[in-house]
Computed example of a mutant assay.
Amino acid sequence: MSIGNSPEDERPFEDPSEEAQFSIGRALRQARISAGLTVDDVSTATRVRIAIIHAIESDDFAPCGGDVYARGHIRTLARAVHLDPAPLIERFDATHGGRPAPTAPAPLFEAERIRPERRGPNWTAAMVAAIVAVVAFVGFTAFNGGDDSGSKAVAGDAAPSTSAPASPTPKTDKSDGIKPEASDSAIAAAPQDKVTVQVSAADGRSWISAKDHNGRLLFDGLLKQGDSKTFQDSEKINLVLGDAGAIDLFVNGKKIDDNFQPGAVERLTYTKGDPQAG
C-alpha cells in the first residue's frame, strides 16, 4: 500500500492587503491546494492540459482558444476543486466584455398583411345546403313511419346471447422473473486468484482514479455520494482518491478502516493478498 504526498509546497504567498483585486487564477489555485490536489491530479480528473491549468491559475486565458472555451475550463476546474463556478464566470465576463447579447428573432409575419379580403355571401352554397337538409329530413321521416311492430317482432325474436363470459386471464407474478440486485456482500465471493476492490462514496462525493497492474485506466471521474465502483485485476489495483475521507473501501471482501481525513488525497495499491491485517 502506498500513500501520496500532500502538495503543501505549492501554497502561494497570501497578500494581506484588502485592496488586492479578486483573481480567478488565485481563487482556483488556493481551492486546489486546500483540497490537497496537485496540478497533475486536476489534469487527470478534468482532462484539461497541464499547461492550460498553469496559465489559468496565472490569469492567462489566451491558451484556452477563446472566451467560450475559457468559461468552460473555468467551470470544469472549479468543480474539480469543490469551488462554486458562478462567481468566477461572473468575474470573467466582467473583465472580458461579458457574453454577447442575443440577436432578437425577426418577426415571422405581420397579421395585418395577411388579413383575408371580405367577400359577399355565397348564395349558391347556401341553397345547396338547404336542399340537402330537406331531402335528409324527408328520408328520415319516411324511414321511421313504417311498421314499428315488425321491427319490434324482429327485435323480440333475437335470442339473448347464452355464451359464458370469458374467464379472466390469470395474472402472472412478474416479480418472479425479476433478478435481485447483487448486494455488497457479493464481493466476499471474489476469486482468490484475483484482487477485488470496491470503492463507495458513503460520506460525500470524491474524484477517483483506478488502474490495473499494466497501468491501464479502469476508471477516472467523479463518484457521487451513494455511488460505488468495483474493480478487479489478476495482480493489483492502483487507486488515487481525491477526498479519501468520503470513501469506504472493501478489499477482497474486507473493509479497510484507515480513518482517512476529509479532503485528503490518497494513493493506494492493493494486491490479491491484501489486506495483510484487519
Rank of each mutant, 00 (worst) to 15 (best):
D193G: 09
K254Q: 11
A104T: 11
A186E: 12
G25V: 04
N5M: 11
A106D: 12
R118M: 07
A94F: 03
K224H: 13
E90T: 10
R119F: 04
P16F: 09
K174D: 11
I53A: 04
A158S: 14
F250P: 01
A62S: 14
E266K: 13
E266L: 10
A133N: 03
D67I: 02
I53C: 06
Q232F: 00
H73N: 13
R26W: 05
R26N: 13
T172R: 15
H213M: 02
I256N: 09
W207L: 04
G221V: 00
A86M: 08
A136P: 08
A210G: 01
G150M: 12
A129W: 04
F22Q: 12
V68H: 06
F137A: 15
D212K: 02
P170S: 09
I50V: 11
D59V: 07
F140V: 11
F231T: 00
D67R: 09
R29I: 02
A70W: 04
I247S: 00
R267L: 09
C64N: 03
I56V: 15
G97R: 02
Q30Y: 02
R115F: 07
G145Q: 11
D41R: 00
D258L: 13
V39G: 02
T76F: 04
E8L: 12
I56A: 01
F22E: 15
S183L: 14
P191L: 06
R49T: 11
Q225S: 10
A277W: 06
I3W: 12
A164Q: 14
A55R: 05
I33D: 08
L37A: 02
P85E: 11
Q225V: 08
A94E: 08
R91F: 06
A186T: 15
T172P: 08
E112R: 12
P102H: 07
P191H: 06
G278H: 05
A106N: 07
A182W: 05
D59C: 07
A246Y: 06
I24V: 11
A45P: 00
V195H: 01
Q192D: 15
L239C: 02
S163M: 15
S43R: 01
D212H: 04
H96M: 05
D203V: 03
Q232I: 04
K272E: 05
K224G: 11
W207Y: 14
K236F: 06
N122S: 15
M1G: 10
T76C: 04
G177H: 07
D193F: 10
E181D: 14
G253L: 11
G146L: 10
L222I: 03
A182I: 15
S209W: 00
R113I: 12
R29L: 06
E90A: 13
V42A: 01
D148P: 09
L239Q: 00
K254P: 00
G204Q: 03
R75D: 09
A264D: 10
S175N: 14
S163K: 13
N144E: 13
I178V: 15
P116W: 03
P87M: 05
D257C: 01
D184Q: 11
P170M: 09
A201N: 05
E19A: 13
G4M: 04
G253Y: 08
D40K: 09
E57G: 05
N144V: 13
G156R: 15
S17Y: 05
I256W: 05
